Computed example of a mutant assay.
Amino acid sequence: MTTLDTPTPARVAVHPRPRPPAGRVFLAVLRRDLMVTRRELWVILLQVALTPLFMLFVFDTVLGRQGIVGPGFADLFLPGVIALAALTTALQSIALPLVKEFGFTMEIEDRLLAPMPTGLVAIGKLVIATLRGLLAAALVYPLGALVVGSAPWRPAGLPVAVLVALLGAWVGAALGMCLATTLPVQRINVTFSVILTPIIWTGCIHYPWPRLSSMPWYQAATALNPMTYVSEGVRGALLPEVAHLPAWICLTVLVAVAGALTWLGVRCFNRRAVQ
């Protein structure tokens, strides 16, 4: 009886699926968030329409018709409203959702499981919030012109105005990330009220910074507010004939503040994600 040798089946090497580059994953996440932003455009429009446009209506139309403010006040006020829309929209766009995602539902875990560093997750959220703030600034300009009936227009100053609004939105987004990742959920609403009030009323939204020289203590207080440099940068770009802070000072301060808050926000985000 002959024994037939049965051949041993060859082992098939199974190679793990290559991990996609972090940059490609980052861009894919950004595309998804941009699609969500496009669908929520009406939400951004509401954020723009509430505080800035009502302020324009009351301070210019209501007070203007009573003779309390001068006829040229709207031209000084509108650049400040643009700055307000950029910074506060970016701040709210990242702070409130991030508090929810780090809350009991822990929705942030889905994003943290993406094959990219945790720091890139934080940067992606900053980018989307900044774009929302910049979009809010672009929307409030024509809407504000409709409310007050006119708007300062200077094409040569638009690049500086856009750059200042972009930096202001990034500062707002980074500040929102710092707040959302360091404060307990129960105190976030109170903190918003405490922080947003001085940001709005000491941010030179309603008046140029050099005209505060008669009140040195208040002028010094407004110099500590990053909103001041956003307002003054946009105002100087659109109304160069009005006394304002030089553009290079506004840009330098905003870049420094944006860099410091970004470093702190990403660090707090990483620490919160690990917890």
Rank of each mutant, 00 (worst) to 15 (best):
F77D: 04
L167A: 14
I82C: 09
V255N: 10
A151M: 14
A22S: 14
G144T: 08
M227G: 08
M55F: 11
C204N: 09
A173C: 12
H15I: 06
F73R: 06
W170D: 01
L41V: 07
D75Q: 10
M215S: 14
L238R: 08
M227S: 14
G203R: 14
T61D: 08
A49I: 06
A10C: 11
L167I: 06
V266W: 03
V230S: 04
L98N: 04
L139H: 06
E40F: 14
G172Y: 03
G259N: 07
V58C: 12
Y229R: 09
A220W: 08
R39G: 13
T202V: 03
V48D: 01
R24H: 13
I188G: 02
G172L: 06
V234D: 03
L87H: 01
V242I: 13
V162D: 03
F57C: 01
T105V: 08
L139D: 00
G23W: 03
Y141T: 01
A260H: 14
S193L: 08
W170M: 05
T88C: 00
E101K: 07
A174H: 02
A174N: 02
L224N: 13
E101T: 06
F104I: 10
L139R: 02
L175Q: 02
P71S: 12
A220V: 08
T252K: 00
V99T: 14
A174W: 02
L212E: 10
V164I: 14
S150T: 11
G203M: 10
A247V: 14
V43M: 13
A90N: 02
A90W: 05
E109L: 15
G149N: 07
D33P: 02
F192Y: 14
G233C: 12
L56N: 08
M55R: 11
L34Q: 10
E40P: 06
N225K: 01
I44H: 00
I249S: 09
V36H: 02
A85Y: 05
A237H: 07
S150Q: 14
M227L: 15
P246Y: 02
D60S: 15
G172R: 03
T89Q: 03
S150A: 12
C178T: 08
T2H: 07
